[in-house]
Amino acid sequence: MSREQELLIIPKTYKNYVGGAFPRTESGRYYKLNSVDGKHLANVCLSTRKDIRNAVQVARKAQASWQNRTAYNQGQIIYRIAEILSGRRHQFEAELESLGYSKEVAQLELESAIDLIVYFAGWTDKVQQVFGAVNPVASHHFNFSRQEAVGVVGMLAPEAPALLGALAMLLPNMVAGNSSIIIASEKLALPLCTFAEVLETSDVPAGVVNILTGKKEELVGHFVSHMDVDALIADPTLSFELRKELEVGSTSNLKRLHFWATGCTVDEIHSTGKSVIENMAKSAKDPYRILDVQEVKTTWHPISE
C-alpha cells in the first residue's frame, strides 16, 4: 500500500450539531453513508424524538438574543459563514463528488452557496427598510409596522442539492431573526454535517442553528407535534405521506407551514445537475421568504394635532 493511501482514510462518525456543540444522538443509533461507488464514507447519527426535544430547547433559548442583535452584527455573522465556507470549499466539493456529483456541478453548488450567503448577509439591515412601513391612519397617531421573528423554525432539508437546498431554507430564517433546526438530507447528509463545523467556527451564536441527521419519516411527527416549534419549512419534493403529516400535524399550535421549492431528487443532480443548481440559485434569492417566517407588529403612537 502506498503512503498516500495509508494516510488518506480516517473514517469518522459525524454527530449532530445542537447548541453550538456536537452531541451524539441520544439513541446511539447511526447509519452508514456510502460514496457513489459503494465505499463507506462515514457514519451519521439517526436522531430521535429526544434529539429534537433537546434541539428545540436550545433553539428557544438562543432565539431572543439572536433576534435582538443589531442588523449590522447579524449581517457580519452571516457574512463570516461565507468567508469560512469559502476557505473550505475544496473539502465540500470533494465530498459532493464522492456522493456522485460531477466536478462541474459540485463547484457550481459551492459557488452558488457562498453567493447566497453573501446575498442574505446583505438583507439583514434592509428587511425593516424595505418591508417595514409607516401607515396612513385617520387619527392622530404615528402608525408603523415592523417585521419580527416568528421564533423557532424547523426545516426539512430536501434530499438534494445537499448544501444549497438546506441553505436556501436556513438563510431567510437567520435574516428573519429565527433560530433553526434543520434535518439534513438523508442520502447526502455529509456536506451539511461538515457545514456544522463551518457554523461552529464562524461566530454564529450557539443554538441559533442546529443540525440533526436521520430519517425524516421518524422525525417529522415529533417536529409537528412540538408546541414550541413556531414554523416548519419543507420542500415540495417531500413524499405525499410526509407532506400530509405536516399539514395535519401543524394545526396543533397553528404552526406556520411553508413549502419552499429548494430541492430536487438525487437523480436529477446526476442527470441535469447544472441547470437544476442554476435555477435553484436564482429562486433561492427570493426575499419574500424572509416574510414567510416573520410576523408583523404594528404600533399606534399618539401624536399631537
Partner: peptide, 9 residues
C-alpha cells in the same frame, strides 16, 4: 398528550 409543550401556554 404526547406533545412537547411550550411556555407560551
Amino acid at each position: 398528550t404526547g406533545r412537547y409543550q411550550s411556555l407560551n401556554y
